[in-house]
Simulated scan of single mutants.
Amino acid sequence: MCLIVFAWRPGHALPLLVAANRDEFYARPAAALAPWDDVPGLVAGRDLQAGGTWLGLGANGRFAALTNIRDPRQPLGSASRGELPARFLASTQSPAEFMAELQPQLHQFSGFNLLLGDGRQLWHLNPRETQPRQLGEGIYGLSNATLDTPWPKLLRARQGLQQALHDADDERLFAVLADPQPAADEHLPDTGVGRETERLLSSVFIRSATYGTRASTLVRIWEDGSRSIHERRFGPHGEPLGETRLELR
């Protein structure tokens, strides 16, 4: 998952609204959004290469999402980062408890951002940056750096979410996630992957022959505990491959 924008508003009728794009090589196999037969209550897409997920819902209002850190110089971990959201969604721990238990294991994973919620609290962890922290009310963005790093794509998507909050129908939110506009060269970040790749990765929605936005997902969690998750899937050059919408009560 490479771009997540979300509105966290405790006490609001819709405390959590999430719009996210998963960017990945098209050749990496993945299963569509669905309940997991082997984990009761877990609903997510699934990485069929390593077995984890990038975003999903669990029992009792649980939510988890992950982005990777883009840094070719970082040491590669021995464990898949996608196991972290799946582990939390299958557990009964609070976000704080899960993150505390995770601390001795962090050396096993390449860099990541982890977002965890249980319907009452929302927590963020980037082990390179800070200790786990509980998030206050606000509109946030995560890409492949740290929370609210001002990359052009993140700023555009976060602004789009903010403008859509009062009329947040699915089509308007998917339009925010479908933005193909690349950043101007003078505003590109330098993450060590070269100017041409930085340019390709600078749009909210990425498309090419081999790598791009594989899924766009909307999540809504209401104060009464009801939830919805809506996923649209794409192939090379952004070709639509299908969609799934689930309502959870």
Rank of each mutant, 00 (worst) to 15 (best):
residue 73 R to C: 07
residue 70 R to D: 11
residue 39 V to H: 08
residue 102 L to R: 12
residue 55 L to F: 05
residue 91 S to R: 05
residue 144 N to I: 08
residue 157 A to R: 14
residue 148 D to Q: 04
residue 44 A to H: 09
residue 142 L to E: 03
residue 76 L to D: 08
residue 130 T to C: 09
residue 123 W to R: 00
residue 134 Q to M: 15
residue 55 L to N: 08
residue 52 G to I: 03
residue 80 S to Y: 06
residue 135 L to E: 00
residue 51 G to M: 03
residue 115 L to Q: 07
residue 135 L to A: 07
residue 141 G to N: 03
residue 51 G to E: 03
residue 63 F to W: 12
residue 101 E to T: 12
residue 80 S to A: 09
residue 148 D to Y: 07
residue 69 I to L: 15
residue 68 N to T: 09
residue 46 R to H: 00
residue 135 L to C: 06
residue 125 L to F: 10
residue 159 Q to R: 11
residue 136 G to L: 12
residue 70 R to C: 09
residue 62 R to C: 02
residue 77 G to V: 09
residue 117 G to R: 06
residue 38 D to P: 01
residue 118 D to Y: 03
residue 43 V to P: 01
residue 114 L to K: 07
residue 102 L to G: 10
residue 119 G to W: 00
residue 102 L to F: 11
residue 56 G to C: 01
residue 57 L to T: 05
residue 96 A to R: 13
residue 154 L to P: 11
residue 77 G to Q: 11
residue 137 E to D: 14
residue 113 N to V: 11
residue 77 G to K: 03
residue 137 E to A: 15
residue 134 Q to E: 15
residue 49 Q to Y: 10
residue 74 Q to V: 01
residue 140 Y to N: 03
residue 101 E to P: 07
residue 130 T to V: 12
residue 71 D to S: 09
residue 102 L to I: 10
residue 107 H to P: 08
residue 150 P to Y: 07
residue 73 R to N: 14
residue 60 N to Y: 01
residue 83 E to C: 12
residue 59 A to G: 15
residue 153 K to D: 04
residue 61 G to P: 12
residue 54 W to H: 01
residue 131 Q to F: 07
residue 97 E to I: 01
residue 147 L to P: 02
residue 112 F to K: 02
residue 55 L to M: 13
residue 75 P to R: 13
residue 114 L to V: 08
residue 83 E to L: 12
residue 48 L to M: 06
residue 153 K to R: 09
residue 131 Q to D: 14
residue 151 W to A: 08
residue 85 P to I: 10
residue 38 D to W: 00
residue 102 L to V: 10
residue 155 L to A: 11
residue 61 G to Q: 13
residue 117 G to D: 00
residue 118 D to H: 05
residue 139 I to L: 13
residue 41 G to C: 08
residue 81 R to A: 14
residue 113 N to K: 14
residue 104 P to M: 08
residue 105 Q to R: 15
residue 90 A to K: 00
residue 72 P to D: 10
residue 140 Y to R: 02
residue 120 R to L: 12
residue 109 F to V: 02
residue 128 R to N: 11
residue 84 L to M: 04
residue 46 R to K: 04
residue 68 N to E: 12
residue 108 Q to R: 15
residue 95 P to T: 04
residue 99 M to K: 10
residue 114 L to C: 03
residue 76 L to N: 10
residue 141 G to T: 06
residue 139 I to W: 00
residue 56 G to K: 00
residue 44 A to Y: 06
residue 110 S to L: 10
residue 116 L to D: 02
residue 97 E to K: 00
residue 152 P to T: 11
residue 81 R to N: 13
residue 109 F to W: 01
residue 81 R to I: 14
residue 100 A to E: 15
residue 50 A to S: 15
residue 138 G to R: 01
residue 131 Q to L: 14
residue 153 K to C: 03
residue 120 R to I: 08
residue 109 F to R: 02
residue 57 L to K: 02
residue 129 E to R: 14
residue 84 L to I: 07
residue 105 Q to P: 11
residue 131 Q to H: 13
residue 134 Q to T: 06
residue 50 A to D: 14
residue 144 N to E: 13
residue 135 L to F: 07
residue 80 S to N: 02
residue 77 G to E: 14
residue 97 E to C: 05
residue 80 S to C: 03
residue 148 D to E: 01
residue 65 A to W: 06
residue 63 F to K: 13
residue 79 A to R: 07
residue 115 L to N: 08
residue 84 L to T: 05
residue 129 E to W: 13
residue 105 Q to K: 15
